[in-house]
Amino acid sequence: MFRRLHKDSETLTITIDDVAMTLPAGSTVAAALLASGNMVCRKTPVSGADRAPYCLMGVCFDCLVEINGEPNQQACMVVVRPGMAVKRMPRPAPVAP
């Protein structure tokens, strides 16, 4: 969906759903998703629809992902670290009525 304008000097590697990806240092996790070719980050709890980052400035809370086992992190506010494991989130198991 998005491409990088430059070849960056300093890079690091993370995984998104166990697929390795190399990125410039200082990128946010949301930027990594956008550059990954599949910007979807989760399914919504209410309808199960796919969502992707929307505002990239921390106000819409659409970009929630699991990072290193912690669910519901705002991808656009978290900077990548070497070895970070990012996972797209499934719809949470609904409470039985």
């Binding site: 709890p45 949470p92 609904p94």
Partner: peptide
């Protein structure tokens, strides 16, 4: 809290998971 996956079937004074999660 935000909606969590279902983990708690019973309410108690102090903690309960709503049907919304």
């Amino acid at each position: 809290t935000e909606r969590l996956p279902a983990f708690l079937d019973f309410p108690m004074s102090g903690v309960r998971q709503t049907v919304e999660g």
